[in-house]
């Protein structure tokens, strides 16, 4: 066990964990930030997506020892009050079915919009390729990203 101070949602947090602990489990079990989800543990499903220095990254595949210099944003830190254009659009389009993957979807979309304010259909589909939605809400995810881009 060792002590690590990491930057989550613009706050410094110190945790006592083993160095190989994935950021995902630090967020969920140590910091009680349950919005970031466990889906596969190998970076294949996107449920654990967070922003690392603005880029969509799989928190299951980043060990805490490698996270100390990173600027990490989770779904809880995407906006102060849940009114990020993507969050508004997600609610407006009634995107979720079960809802489990949606935090990861929103974080991948947030990274896309940071780089590309007006994504084409193809840009969206490519950027969202790494996020599985088992319920199949893909069409609404695309539509919500379009709406968010328009309203951003």
């Amino acid at each position: 066990m060792a002590s690590y101070t990491i930057s989550i949602n613009n706050q410094k947090k110190t945790v006592e964990v083993d160095p190989d602990t994935p950021l995902l489990w630090v967020l969920r079990d140590e910091l009680n930030l349950k919005g970031t989800k466990y889906g596969c543990g190998i970076g294949q499903c996107g449920a654990c997506t967070v922003l690392v220095d603005g880029n969509a990254s799989r928190s299951c595949s980043i060990q805490v020892k490698d996270a100390i210099d990173l600027n990490i944003t989770t779904i809880e830190g995407l906006s102060e009050d849940g009114t990020h254009p993507l969050q508004n659009a997600w609610i407006e389009h009634d995107v979720p079915q079960c809802g489990y993957c949606q935090a990861g979807q929103i974080m991948s979309a947030a990274a896309l919009l940071k780089k590309n304010a007006n994504p084409t259909d193809q840009d969206i589909q490519e950027a969202m390729h790494g996020n599985i939605c088992r319920c199949g809400t893909y069409l609404r995810i695309r539509a919500a990203i379009k709406t968010a881009a328009k309203n951003a």
């Binding site: 930030l33 919005g35 849940g82 969050q87 997600w90 609610i91 407006e92 009634d94 979720p96 949606q102």
Partner: peptide
């Protein structure tokens, strides 16, 4: 709309 929509979009514990 889904009654849990806001909670889902903001990552509140639900599951």
């Amino acid at each position: 709309q889904n009654v849990d929509g806001l909670k889902i979009a903001t990552g509140k514990p639900l599951f």
